[in-house]
């Protein structure tokens, strides 16, 4: 398949990640959306490296992203639990202390 097909898939995935973050009203969905976006990025890295790159750069970047995603997921989950503990809710719209 051509490179553009992978890019298109990546773009769709990215867009769905954004939609997931923006539209759903649960912090867990925000996390899921972030994972989707990261996956989209990974697909791009690997695809560009495969079709246009040289050596391991793309894959290394992807591995790094996966590692970061894992770390992020762990920390974010801890944060989610803390937020729930403090605010008794998991709706990001209600965690609005940053207003004012």
């Amino acid at each position: 398949m051509a490179l553009s097909a992978y890019i298109a898939v990546s773009a769709v995935l990215f867009a769905l990640g954004i939609v997931c973050i923006v539209t759903r009203r649960n912090i867990i969905y925000v996390l899921m959306g972030i994972e989707m976006i990261l996956n989209a990025a990974n697909i791009n890295f690997v695809a560009f490296a495969r079709f246009n790159g040289d050596g391991l750069d793309g894959q290394m970047m992807a591995i790094f992203v996966i590692i970061l995603a894992a770390a992020e997921a762990a920390v974010a989950l801890a944060i989610v639990l803390n937020v729930f503990h403090l605010f008794e809710t998991v709706k990001p719209s209600e965690v609005d202390l940053m207003r004012d």
């Binding site: 867990i28 894992a70 989950l77 639990l81 998991v90």
Partner: peptide, 22 residues
């Protein structure tokens, strides 16, 4: 992803109250 992150997410789901109306 499937073995780690997804499991984490499921933990998060389980530790927070379900809200089907959101």
């Amino acid at each position: 992803y499937v073995g780690g992150i997804l499991a984490l997410l499921l933990f998060g789901v389980m530790l927070t109250p379900p809200d089907l109306s959101e």
